[in-house]
């Protein structure tokens, strides 16, 4: 039994290797991009539109609404990053109903890469939002003594993001694998359903946490002194 799809190596040439994680990621990317391109190829601007267009519009506007609810101004600016995070993680979890498929998010490498993306995106959005000085100053809040703790917090929350997603996705796949060997009929189906739910919840949590970090970084120093918003969910 493989703990991670990284270990399922299909092709290798020196440092380069093609493992199941990358392959399934490409497959997901292909499905997402081709599907989006096919649907958005002929978008209607009138009152009558296709159900697929309705689905996409509902998804996009729901993500925008969530971003807006977190207090981020101009949500369209963060839509591409946060929306893709959610859609990728959610589709990776949804596809786990396909036999033979292993979600790429069950690989710590993938979740680490996503967490690194968040780690890089937060300061970028923060600097774009309040300038370099303003962003760096936020590390000295509320007092300069807190600088090392803030830095540790940055790293630790990135680590937490990566490990949380990996643990949940991997455990879901592992549980199903173990149960298949014990009770092969009804119970794995129930657990697969639970795994789907867990995957959707994790996608939501990951995206919301990233949004919260970005929101904290883009807020001005005056806003930072105000009481913090809702506490990030812990899982």
């Amino acid at each position: 039994m493989r703990l991670t799809p990284d270990s399922w190596i299909l092709w290798e040439y020196g440092l380069f290797k093609l493992n199941a994680t990358i392959l399934f990621t490409w497959a997901l990317m292909l499905v997402l991009v081709v599907g989006a391109a096919l649907i958005t190829r002929r978008l209607a601007t009138g009152h009558q539109r296709s159900r697929w267009q309705n689905l996409l519009e509902i998804v996009v506007t729901a993500i925008m609404g969530q971003i807006e609810d977190l207090g981020l101004e101009n949500p369209r600016r963060y839509l591409a990053f946060l929306g893709t995070l959610f859609l990728f993680i959610a589709s990776a979890a949804l596809a786990s109903v396909i036999p033979g498929y292993e979600p790429p998010t069950a690989s710590l490498s993938t979740t680490a890469a996503l967490a690194l993306c968040v780690l890089i995106a937060v300061p970028l959005f923060g600097i774009a939002g309040q300038g370099l000085a303003g962003y760096l100053k936020s590390y000295l809040q509320p007092t300069p003594i807190m600088l090392p703790f803030n830095l540790i917090g940055e790293v630790s929350r990135t680590l937490a993001l990566a490990v949380r997603l990996f643990g949940n996705m991997m455990s879901g796949a592992m549980i199903i694998g173990i149960l298949l060997s014990i009770t092969p009929f009804v119970f794995p189906v129930v657990m697969t359903l639970l795994g789907l739910l867990t995957g959707m919840v994790q996608a939501y949590i990951f995206t919301i946490l990233a949004a919260v970090y970005i929101a904290a970084a883009t807020r001005s120093s005056t806003a930072a002194t105000t009481p913090p918003g809702p506490a990030p969910p812990a899982a």
Partner: peptide
């Protein structure tokens, strides 16, 4: 696997760009 991490990082950035190009912009424009 740090190679996989790098590849997934790149994959994700490409996916962000592609989704922006093929999904968000057309839908929001519509």
């Amino acid at each position: 696997d740090w190679f996989t991490v790098g590849a997934q990082l790149l994959n994700f950035i490409i996916l962000v760009w592609l989704m922006k190009r093929f999904l968000y912009q057309p839908v929001l424009n519509a």
